[in-house]
Amino acid sequence: MVFLEFEKPLEKLYEQLEKIKQVEEEGIVDVSDTIKELENKIKNTRKEIYASLTGWQRVQLSRHPERPYTLYYINQMCRKFVELHGDRYFKDDTAIVGGLANLDGQSVVIIGHQKGVNTKMRQFRNFGMANPEGYRKALRLMKLAERFDFPVITLIDTPGAFPGLEAEERGQAEAIARNLFEMAQLKVPIVCVIIGEGASGGAIGIGLGDRVYMLENTWYSVISPESCSSILWHSWDYKERAADALKLTAEDMFNAGLIDGIIKEPTGGAHAIPDEMAKLLKRQIKKALAEVQEMPPDERIDARINKYAAMGVYERITPNPVE
């Protein structure tokens, strides 16, 4: 088990539990009551810790090494997933996966960022940082979905679009911009869920939809807390404050009216009971699809554009009479 900084009290309790279990195995003293007591304590401590997490703690949870990623959810939620590869222009980006799937009898296209599960795979997946060909593959699959009237589901989990030399050469900005433009007017329903990290353009590049949800312990903002700290505080040491200032949690985003809902995670985070998380995720996706599938395509596109057009906070001042 991997314990995060703020889970230290839990780690200690687990250590105690281990020791007592060893005593139990020796079979000399009856410790079943102590074990029960400890297990209860663990449960309560976990509840307590998870009842009031800070922004930065949620950022840490969103990056938990044991957290489930896109392919796990796809395999849990769908039967017959057929992964499709390549953008048909340049190559196949391994940081974004996608394909056709069957979601309880309904054909869908599912696309998502994919992080690696171990050191080797993390490199293979480029840590979930997509190149332009990843965004273009995603768009190709969305266009495929549109042609055959399949709804689109996207799962977002990226520390950002890859800031590399070749990414710039091949038009990272154009690829993301094009996706936003095309997703805004795609004729089929789009449901997006932030399942981990939602970093800026790299996230929104597959994140414009009729419904956008965030898992409880994820973040979504214009920049990562670390980079924000380095730019605005000129130091890497203010990431906790930056995380607070950015208001990047699911709750913040929902209160600001920028997402449509929050999907609760099991206590201890998505990685504590991954199959339970997959069930909750699937339930919300199906509910959302049912809502938006009823609308005629033109109406749905209009509603989608109007939703984004309404995002923003500003004031009107009385114009200067001279101007």
Binding site: A177, G201, L246, L258, M311
Partner: peptide, 8 residues
């Protein structure tokens, strides 16, 4: 922050 991201 998130408001400016949504302007994209």
């Amino acid at each position: 922050a998130s408001f400016s991201l949504m302007q994209m």
